[in-house]
Amino acid sequence: MSDAIESRLNELGITLPVAAAPAANYVSYVISGNLLYISGQLPTEDGKLEIKGLVGQDVDVATASRAAELCAINILSQAKAALNGDLGKIKRVVKLSSFVASAPGFTEQHIVTNGASNLIANVLGEAGKHARAAVGMAALPLNAAVEIEAIIEIDA
């Protein structure tokens, strides 16, 4: 399974970065029983926050969707670190919770979040189909446009 996931990542032109260290007093992930909880991931690339601002004001929907994709890539990176490099241990992505920094009146958080949902499903196949929440926020840490956390069922 891990080879198939790596193959899909390669087909999509995605190289998982080294998992980022926490930026405050928390851990990047916790394994409890057969569940892997991944802390909120920001749209970083090459160690830099790439997409900032309020969606619907500073950031358009297509760019915010790309931000959600970057969050999903970082979620997979954290999962790989938590699972000692073996993404094949993922049984199912149970839930993604997406937080979108939204301008007043912006109501397309669900479309923004599709960036992450589509990427996770494309990489993991059936195991990537998940429940989710897409929530608008007044602001996010570091002025990020999107933040996404995950709950993943794993082979313990």
Score class of each variant (00 low, 15 high):
residue 10 N to V: 07
residue 10 N to F: 13
residue 10 N to T: 14
residue 11 E to K: 13
residue 12 L to H: 09
residue 12 L to G: 07
residue 12 L to C: 04
residue 13 G to Q: 05
residue 13 G to S: 06
residue 13 G to C: 10
residue 14 I to L: 12
residue 14 I to F: 12
residue 14 I to M: 09
residue 15 T to A: 13
residue 15 T to S: 14
residue 15 T to L: 07
residue 16 L to V: 08
residue 16 L to M: 10
residue 16 L to F: 04
residue 16 L to K: 00
residue 16 L to S: 05
residue 17 P to L: 10
residue 18 V to W: 04
residue 18 V to Y: 05
residue 18 V to P: 08
residue 18 V to G: 11
residue 19 A to Y: 02
residue 19 A to G: 03
residue 19 A to T: 02
residue 19 A to V: 02
residue 20 A to R: 13
residue 20 A to N: 08
residue 20 A to T: 03
residue 20 A to Y: 11
residue 21 A to R: 15
residue 21 A to I: 10
residue 21 A to M: 11
residue 22 P to F: 03
residue 22 P to I: 04
residue 23 A to I: 12
residue 23 A to E: 14
residue 24 A to N: 09
residue 24 A to G: 14
residue 24 A to L: 09
residue 25 N to A: 11
residue 26 Y to D: 04
residue 26 Y to V: 09
residue 26 Y to R: 06
residue 27 V to T: 15
residue 27 V to F: 10
residue 28 S to F: 02
residue 29 Y to A: 14
residue 29 Y to P: 06
residue 29 Y to R: 06
residue 29 Y to D: 11
residue 29 Y to H: 15
residue 30 V to Q: 10
residue 31 I to P: 07
residue 31 I to E: 05
residue 31 I to Q: 12
residue 32 S to I: 05
residue 32 S to C: 03
residue 33 G to H: 11
residue 34 N to P: 10
residue 35 L to V: 14
residue 35 L to S: 10
residue 36 L to Q: 08
residue 36 L to N: 10
residue 36 L to V: 10
residue 37 Y to H: 08
residue 37 Y to L: 11
residue 37 Y to F: 10
residue 38 I to G: 02
residue 38 I to V: 13
residue 38 I to L: 06
residue 38 I to T: 01
residue 39 S to N: 00
residue 39 S to T: 05
residue 40 G to L: 04
residue 42 L to E: 13
residue 42 L to G: 02
residue 42 L to K: 09
residue 42 L to T: 07
residue 43 P to Y: 08
residue 44 T to F: 06
residue 44 T to K: 12
residue 44 T to L: 07
residue 45 E to Y: 01
residue 45 E to G: 03
residue 45 E to D: 06
residue 45 E to H: 06
residue 46 D to F: 03
residue 47 G to W: 02
residue 47 G to E: 04
residue 48 K to R: 15
residue 48 K to Q: 13
residue 49 L to Q: 00
residue 49 L to K: 00
residue 49 L to R: 00
residue 49 L to I: 04
residue 50 E to L: 11
residue 50 E to R: 14
residue 51 I to F: 08
residue 51 I to E: 07
residue 51 I to D: 07
residue 52 K to A: 11
residue 52 K to D: 04
residue 52 K to W: 02
residue 53 G to W: 03
residue 53 G to E: 08
residue 54 L to H: 12
residue 55 V to E: 05
residue 55 V to H: 06
